[in-house]
Amino acid sequence: MDSEILSKTNRLFWLGRYVERTIVEIDIMMDAYDRAIDREPFDFRTFCEQLEIECPYETSDEFILSFLFDEDYPCSVISTLGYAYDNAIVLREVISSASLSYIQMAVNIMQSAASGVAPMLELQSVVDMLYAFRGCCDDRVLDTANRYTIKCGYSVEYIDMCIRLNYHVHTLDVELARLQTRLQNTPMRRDGKRLMALLGLAPNPDPASNRELLLDCVEGLFLDA
């Protein structure tokens, strides 16, 4: 993706995806961190397999900290937030300085959390900033197509994470319905076959049985992404 020149619409979509991914991953890691207090190990190897990411770590504790804060680990949360920033920084005139400032603050807090004494508390502030970003975009991104393209990014990532990780899977049908609405307002071209398949599954997605099909449909939904 780095070698390609991404159009602004594409960047908006990926900005949405990376913001959503950061929020979901922090939520999962905060839960894992909490369980670790009671010596309940986090099954990080399965987690990595489900996300199809490499896992160079040996222990649960090591993984949790690295997955959150290791800037040299390209799959870490801090890296994912960095990718959101990379897209946001070139979209200032589209999303507004006000919206961009929330991403900037999330990055600043994440960096401080990495060396802080109470990282979980600071992670909550990162999530707060990202939700503030979403609210600010709703208000400040006046162009409907741009606004909904970011939202398509949120939805696609959320659905992807639901399917892969069994994360809040009971909300999957709601998110699919939400994506359907958002699709009507983005200029991004979609794959008709995949869209029809996705809409067919939307009322009862059943990710346990339809995992591969759902992932294929949602990942390949947008032709230009």
Binding site: I5, D86, I89, V90, R92, E93, S96, S97
Partner: peptide
């Protein structure tokens, strides 16, 4: 974005209502 004055470029684009564009 790796230009020394990138903040300025993007901020002025927003302030002047212009499109910020790179070569591509």
């Amino acid at each position: 974005r790796y230009n020394a004055a990138y903040f300025e470029h993007s901020y002025l684009a927003e302030q002047a209502g212009a499109i910020l564009a790179e070569a591509g």
